[in-house]
Amino acid sequence: MFDFADPLPARRPSLTPMIDVVFLLLVFFMLVSQVGREGGLPLSAAGAGAPYQGPPRLVGIAPGAITLNGRPVALDRLAEALSPLTEGPADAILLRTTDGATLQHLTDVTDALTAAGFARLVLVE
């Protein structure tokens, strides 16, 4: 008749492959996740919030120049030129870019204005 061999003892499943997959997923999500918001521009869209009141404070950002109310001004003198037109840091400053202006140029202007203490920057078309 049939002669069966003795049954083998049951093997315990290895957890090593599962642990490897879990560590790979952990590393993946650590690398992909956004840790913090770095480099955010503090801008609001035109028409949001209270209507604009006060003297004109329009900063034009062109590829080669910056203007304040249509007059050319250097980036390092922009905050000084804006101070007579504002009553405090909560006053709105309108930023308008022209065709060809880069995002880096807009970032430089917003960095200079926030460093000078201006908190409400509004981007208009």
Rank of each mutant, 00 (worst) to 15 (best):
D6A: 10
D6E: 13
P7R: 13
P7H: 05
P7W: 08
L8Y: 12
A10C: 04
R12H: 07
R12Y: 10
S14K: 08
L15N: 11
T16F: 08
P17K: 05
P17L: 12
M18F: 14
D20A: 15
D20Y: 14
V22R: 11
F23E: 10
F23S: 05
L24A: 15
L24G: 11
L25R: 03
L26Q: 10
V27S: 05
F28N: 05
M30R: 02
S33H: 15
S33K: 14
Q34M: 12
V35F: 10
R37F: 15
G39E: 12
G40Y: 06
G40N: 12
L41D: 01
L41H: 02
P42M: 03
P42S: 05
L43S: 01
L43H: 03
L43K: 06
S44I: 13
S44T: 13
A45C: 01
A46D: 11
A46K: 09
A46R: 05
G47Y: 04
A48I: 10
G49D: 02
A50N: 04
A50L: 03
A50F: 00
Y52P: 00
Q53V: 15
P55W: 05
P56E: 11
P56V: 01
L58S: 00
L58P: 01
V59I: 11
I61R: 05
P63K: 00
G64Q: 13
G64I: 01
G64Y: 06
A65V: 02
N69G: 00
N69F: 00
N69P: 00
P72T: 09
P72K: 14
A74F: 09
D76C: 03
R77S: 14
L78K: 06
L78E: 05
L78I: 08
E80W: 11
A81Y: 03
L82V: 02
L82R: 03
S83T: 15
P84N: 04
L85I: 10
L85H: 09
T86P: 00
G88Q: 02
P89Q: 08
A90R: 13
L94V: 02
L94F: 05
L95I: 02
L95N: 01
T97E: 15
T97D: 11
T98F: 11
D99S: 12
G100C: 09
A101W: 08
T102F: 00
L103M: 15
L106K: 05
D108W: 07
D108G: 01
T110S: 10
T110D: 03
A112K: 12
A116V: 02
G117P: 05
F118H: 12
R120A: 08
L121Q: 07
L123I: 01
V124Q: 04
V124G: 00
